[in-house]
Nucleic acid binder design. Structure first.
Length: 580
RNA sequence: GGUCCCGUGGUGUAGCCUGGCCAAACACGCGGCCCUGUCAAGGCCGAGAGCGCCGGUUCGAAUCCGGUCGGGACCGCCA
């Protein structure tokens, strides 16, 4: 028995009328009328209605999710009984033979698009979850996007080169997943966080145009839009500028959208610089599908009598606000919920106008605030006063929350943009200088003199491509001069010894003829999230892990045989139990 | 590392705030019977949970308290 070349259930159309077919699939539903029964037969391509008439076939015990094989003839449905909701709805298959290939237990949740089952259950029975047509469709769409990427990159003469999975660990960046070495006791490989250094070395090697659909692993805490094992389109090119990268990637997305979704997206994409993005949208990945632009009103409130606002300003902080159109209809309870959200994100509090603060704010200040955010008479203005970075985080969060709650997002829009330029250095929580993108990013040539004097003002040749509030790719033009690279490492506080042990190979390579180069990496998972408009990254990954990095289906991670540990020269020290 | 939400038949929820009327309700699913055109098929009948787990408070706990486990969201983190 081979059904491999049989027609697909979901592919039958009116044109197939009269065909004698054999179908293989899963029983999605059975409707038994006594003398006649209907079976909706499902495969990867969709579902088709099978009609069963003969007494013996009707009486066959066919239950949901059984795998069956039928022989029959494709027929047009009787006039009036077509089902426009099904792609195959014009036809049905009249069965004259039916064979049960595999029985099935009642599944732990119903195989239908309307997901009701608990996330943990879906993950445990992922193979059933993927049977849901929506999940199957998501995976197929992902496949088509990746294929379109391969075609485009190949057409532009990019060469796919595989890079190793077993690398050397670095203390930079995110936490490494490490792999013990059997042959080198006490030594470990690290799994790639990205092929960053390797792709730069490929440029030194003269490859010129490299790409790879690469898996990258980062041992960090998860979020709704993060997975442990990300897939990224990794690109690096020689003798290029930012503009070459922008053009390439704009063309890539335009091609993918056209090929996969049949949608024309306009290029070039608009650009916004980092500072403006943080001010107006409270994030480095703004979603322009709704308004709610944030304004800084600190200057108008320098002398204000509202001490909560004044206090923040006096401490060197900022006051930021935006107007919620028609927000007067929000209840006190709803505003309090937003306050809880703001405090949860670390804000000292949330104020709103009109609200309790009004009597401490002068008329002049009030009108300055209202005009800054273009507030109308029915609007409510949300106000946060805090340290700049905190205020940005909180305003960004509130902006997203308000857009979601009040359904202000214009779905169906594709708002691509570049965040560019960014800054070379940032201040970390301890007030130390650290890199904004990564330590290989090139400074702007004209800002070079500021490197040692005013490092925070040095712009970086770094860019992010953002789609509908999702950062779908980011990259930079790299440093290709050994002395400049060493200088930047030095500004980042690395001593000569550390530079040599961590990055010696790169610096060595830079002494053998290195082309100027740059590139970009695009997260395929997040790209797919934007395409199918989901906020749950597990909707676009076949076998995702939980927030605590577990695979509920496989039961991973798990303990290993003591012999394996011995071979690897590893002894496990259990975590200390807190004294009870 | 921190904050918050959730955990009740196979599934999704209601009940929990304001303990007793809850040997727990509803829908879907599941099982049986009937039915020749349905497509969320329909009709009738039926089975199925002691409320994640442990402990406490109380005459009495699904409901209150503490702990724990699991899932999720967020802050930190994610070059």
């Amino acid at each position: 028995m081979s059904g491999f070349n049989s027609p697909h259930c979901g592919s039958l159309r009116a044109a197939d009328e009269g065909r004698e077919v054999e179908l293989y699939g899963w029983v999605a539903r059975r409707r038994d009328h006594g003398g006649v029964a209907f079976i909706d037969l499902r495969d990867r391509w969709g579902t088709v209605q099978v009609v069963v008439r003969s007494v013996s076939l009707v009486q066959t015990e066919v239950r949901n999710e059984y795998v069956i094989h039928i022989k029959g003839k494709v027929a047009r449905r009787p006039a009036g009984s077509e089902n426009p909701k099904m792609a195959t709805g014009e036809v049905e298959v009249v069965a004259d033979d039916l064979e049960i290939i595999s029985e099935a237990k009642t599944p732990p949740f119903e195989i239908e698009d309307e997901v009701k089952a608990d996330e943990a259950l879906r993950l445990k029975y992922r193979y059933l979850d993927i049977r849901r047509p929506k999940m199957t469709h998501n995976l197929e769409l992902r496949h088509r996007v990746v294929q379109a990427i391969h075609r485009y990159m190949d057409a532009h003469e990019f060469m796919e080169v595989e890079t190793p999975m077993l690398l050397k660990g670095t203390p930079e960046g995110s936490r490494d997943f490490i792999v013990p070495s059997r042959l080198h006791p006490g030594e470990f490989f690290a799994l790639p966080q990205s092929p960053q250094q390797l792709k730069q070395l490929l440029m030194v090697a003269g490859i010129g145009r490299y790409y790879q659909i690469a898996r990258c692993l980062r041992d960090e805490d998860l979020r709704a839009d993060r997975v442990v094992e990300i897939t990224q389109l990794d690109v690096e090119m020689s003798f290029c500028t930012e503009e070459d990268v922008f053009t390439l990637i704009e063309g890539l997305w335009a091609n993918v959208w056209k090929d996969v979704l049949g949608i024309e997206i306009p290029t070039p994409f608009p650009r916004i610089d980092m500072q403006e993005s943080l001010l107006k949208y409270g994030t480095d990945k703004p979603d322009l599908r709704y308004g709610l632009e944030i304004a800084d009103v600190g200057d108008a409130l320098r002398e204000t009598g509202a001490t909560v606002l004044r206090g923040a300003l006096d401490a060197g902080g900022v006051v930021r606000c935006f107007a919620v159109p028609g927000g007067k209809d929000m209840s006190r309870r709803e505003l309090d919920e937003l306050g809880v959200l703001a405090r949860g994100a670390g804000a000292k509090g949330l104020a709103w106008i009109p609200g309790p603060l009004d009597r401490h704010i002068s008329d002049g200040e009030m009108s300055a605030i209202k005009s800054a955010v273009h507030a109308g008479p029915d609007d409510v203005v949300l106000v946060v006063a805090d340290r700049r970075r905190k205020a940005e985080t909180v305003m960004g969060l509130l902006r997203r929350e308000i857009a979601r709650r009040r359904q202000l997002v214009r779905h169906g829009e594709w708002n691509f943009l570049w965040v560019y330029p960014m800054y070379l250095f940032e201040e970390d929580d301890l007030g130390n200088l650290t890199y904004g993108h990564h330590p290989f990013t090139s400074p702007w040539p004209e800002d070079m003199p500021l490197l040692e004097t005013r490092p925070y003002d040095v712009r970086a040749r770094a860019y992010d491509c953002v789609l509908n509030g999702v950062e779908i790719s980011g990259g930079s033009i790299r440093i290709h001069q050994r002395d400049l690279q060493e200088k930047v490492f030095g500004i980042l506080g690395m001593d000569a010894e550390r530079i040599r042990s961590q990055f010696g190979h790169l610096l060595d390579a830079f002494e053998y003829g290195v082309p100027p180069h740059g590139g970009i990496a695009a997260g395929i998972d997040r790209l797919m999230m934007a395409i199918i408009e989901t906020e749950n990254i597990r909707d676009v990954v076949a076998f995702p892990k939980t927030q605590s990095h577990q695979d509920l289906m496989l039961g991973a991670p798990g303990v290993v045989d003591p012999k394996q540990l011995e071979e690897l020269h590893i002894r496990v020290v259990p975590p200390k139990k807190p004294a009870s």
